[in-house]
Design a protein around this nucleic acid. Structure first.
Lengths: 345, 345
DNA sequence: CTGAAAGCGCTAACAT
DNA sequence: ATGTTAGCGCTTTCAG
């Protein structure tokens, strides 16, 4: 392994000067600097980041903990984070919590040993306490909020997005609108549910708890919830469904197929999260799209700005985009859509 | 930060003994060992892996470089690698080459500074030379082979999988079978193409180069290739398509829709790679499925076994699974399928 | 079985 | 502007 010592020898300077020439060029005479840099290139010198980090008590490393890397939404978040980090010379240590407290805990422990400069985390309900393992570490919460005081968050405007989606259904004449909501202890689910309530209230539709079912944010949960909702007796069964995330939407759509329901004739669907799947199944789904990549990239930029000592906003909310496609129609027996509500594009 | 020194003090031993008690318990008296372990737990001691790695000249870290983390196939490979690594106490540093030589190069450079014990890489055509940056590092090539001599590889039986798929089309009476093949400098594409040729030969169908188009392994490339193939004059146009990977398949299917073609009535399709998308679009696609997760997991197990000094096979090929769904029918004008070829399930 | 001492490769004080 | 020295936290000789 080629070390700084080797470079220094070749450039005929001390190791300290070699170090300076490479990391703080302005502190070194031009001639020396060039000699050292040349030597480094010649030898193919690559700094040992372990030694450097040990000395500096902190590495150019960022932690990233997501809850499900197989979910394309999270994969895209991760790519946004990675691309920004890489561009700034940071390495990201990525972990999967799989939504499990114990796994998140282990991720934090492992991370700690690597002395990361900061952490970006998609919180689970346990994050609040697990973060005690990393006292003093700058943290950005991504996609969801853990509820810690003064936490820095980069989120999406879930409530407005959900309200827009449900208003759209109401505007098409739906009165029995079901929601598959997600876990009640996760902020996105709570906020999207709140948007659902508000849209109903705006449309003068009473809130009916039996039409709102929790899911587990996975396909299986969405499927089970959809089956339960669609098993209600004819007069009670929802004519439209608002589904709280991409994975549950897959389950819900599969459930409608299993029941032989046609979309949107027999049932209208609006989903949170866009995806290639939502774009290319038939009918293409009307969705509330999130800027996933930008979310990840922004979280990383925010973290790096904080590390650089800049003032950054504590809570950022990006906007969602409502995308109308082919999965919404008036309820059966009421063929004509009502006019669009004021204030919508 | 709690260090070994703190633990040692609390347990009333030297730092050296504390270190031994924690990492080589058999070298320490039972009583001492327990005292130290207890102290470590009490203080919440977490070893500083940087210091440890510096001293040991190597970290409990593995590199993983994939070509496209947004591709679910690669995301699943990555999860397989991660899960195994984590279970063995290894941390994985994951990078994205995006199929670009320069990015892969940078990933290798960054990795080098972290003194990883080994590397798992989905090779690009540049990997062969880029690996010079990491001399002596144990490497496993995953999914594709770079062509380096003595390289350890964990692959799938691409040729047999492709042959099975194309034979299936031939057995249904197709004679003009197109292939969207991927890049000619990537081993999977070459091997799948070879399987295609062999199947044609077995079925007595002449090979026609104009029916074989390269793609870029992405959706856009698949779409363009499909459009080109389907723009051939009526008598030359393929009645069936074999598509070389999951992403290009999406593009190809979208192209058929843009052309108003019905699957499988107007065109039969068999694809390499299964995916939820392939399972849930209509018609569901007949595919050659790969054991993605197992590929990643096996690559990692193989690497760790090598690090442990065990003898491991140099080249491993996992089997693919042919899954018949609804995207294959006899060509138009020839309604009755021919009997299945001998040797197939 | 345990302790003392050295050193992994680098950078930050402190000199000059 | 550069060299000297010390030390980051840990493991590993080497003694005892």
């Amino acid at each position: 392994m080629i070390g700084l010592e080797d470079v220094a020898k070749l450039a005929q300077v001390s190791a300290a000067t070699a170090s300076r020439a490479l990391t703080k060029p302005e502190l070194v005479a031009e001639a020396t600097r060039e000699r050292v840099q040349h030597a480094a290139r010649t030898l193919g010198y690559q700094p040992n980041v372990l030694a450097r980090s040990l000395r500096q008590r902190g590495s150019r490393t960022l932690g990233l903990v997501v809850t499900d890397i197989l979910n394309p939404f999270h994969a895209t978040l991760a790519k946004g984070v990675q691309d920004v980090a890489e561009a700034q010379g940071y390495t990201v240590l990525m972990f999967n919590s799989d939504e499990e407290s114990a796994r998140e805990r282990r991720a934090f422990e492992t991370l700690r040993g690597h002395l990361p400069r900061g952490l970006i985390v998609v919180p689970t309900p346990a994050t609040h306490t697990n973060l005690d393992l990393l006292p003093g570490l700058p943290v950005i919460e991504l996609d969801r909020a853990s509820g810690r005081a003064n936490a820095h968050t980069v989120l999406v405007d879930n409530e407005a997005g959900a309200e827009r989606a449900v208003s759209h259904l109401a505007a098409h004449g739906h009165r029995r609108i079901g929601m598959i909501v997600g876990r009640r202890d996760i902020s996105t689910a709570i906020e999207r549910h709140e948007g659902y309530r508000r849209a109903l209230a705006d449309a003068g539709i009473p809130y009916r708890p039996e039409l709102v079912l929790p899911g587990d944010h996975r396909e299986a949960g969405g499927r089970a919830a959809a089956h339960a909702l669609l098993a209600l007796p004819a007069g009670e069964r929802p004519t439209a469904l608002f589904v709280g995330n991409n994975e549950m939407t897959v389950g819900a759509v599969l459930a409608t197929r299993e029941l032989g329901l046609r979309l949107p004739g027999d049932l209208s669907v609006v989903a949170f999260d866009d995806s290639r799947w939502a774009q290319t199944i038939l009918p293409a789904l009307t969705v509330v799209a999130q800027p996933e990549y930008e979310l990840g990239a922004l979280a990383c930029r925010t973290l790096l700005a904080r590390l650089a000592g800049e003032e950054v906003p504590t809570a950022v909310r990006l906007k969602t985009t409502f995308i109308e496609r082919d999965s919404v129609a008036p309820p059966a027996g009421q063929p004509r859509p009502q006019p669009h509500p004021a204030g919508s594009p």
